[in-house]
């Protein structure tokens, strides 16, 4: 039986805007995924550790201040260093177009800016999971 997709939602740095992450958490759960929420004021190390310990498939990071340019790429680096580079890393929030382009180059697979429908994010994760072999067997 395919296990449910496990998603870690994370807030890095000092940014405390939580509406986006609250909404995404509830939407992903309603779509049948398992959601773990990091809480506020996380460092990239804390997020990478949690992602590995909890064996998540997807890491979604939310930024509505400046954290994305420094912290998002660092999470990708840490995951790769620890052999966990196969996880899907995505970001969202208030992220200017030029920053999004830079993040995509640094291994963030996709950046969803403010106003993206939750259904679009769910469909994206489901498509990625399907492309990966319809979830791993447990």
């Amino acid at each position: 039986m395919a296990r449910r997709t496990r998603v870690l939602l994370a807030k890095l740095g000092l940014d405390a805007h939580t509406i986006g992450v609250n909404v995404i958490a509830q939407a992903l759960r309603d779509a049948g995924m398992e959601v773990i929420y990091s809480g506020l004021k996380q460092t990239p190390e804390m997020v990478a550790n949690t992602a590995i310990q909890e064996d998540v498939d997807v890491i979604g990071m939310s930024s509505l201040s400046a954290a994305h340019m420094t912290h998002f790429p660092r999470v990708v680096e840490l995951l790769r260093e620890r052999g966990a580079g196969d996880k899907l890393v995505i970001g969202g929030g208030v992220i200017p177009d030029e920053d999004s382009a830079a993040l995509l180059e640094k291994g963030i697979e996709r950046v969803f800016t403010m106003g993206t429908a939750t259904t679009e994010i769910i469909a994206y994760i489901e498509a990625w999971q399907a492309g990966r072999g319809a979830g791993r067997d447990t």
């Binding site: 740095g13 940014d15 460092t43």
Partner: peptide
């Protein structure tokens, strides 16, 4: 800015990227 409201100086590791930003 967020370092100030969180009680941190501008050279604190968590302040990176946030100094004078929001």
């Amino acid at each position: 800015d967020l370092p100030t409201t969180n009680g941190l100086d501008s050279d604190h590791p968590l302040a990176v990227g946030e100094v004078g930003r929001a």
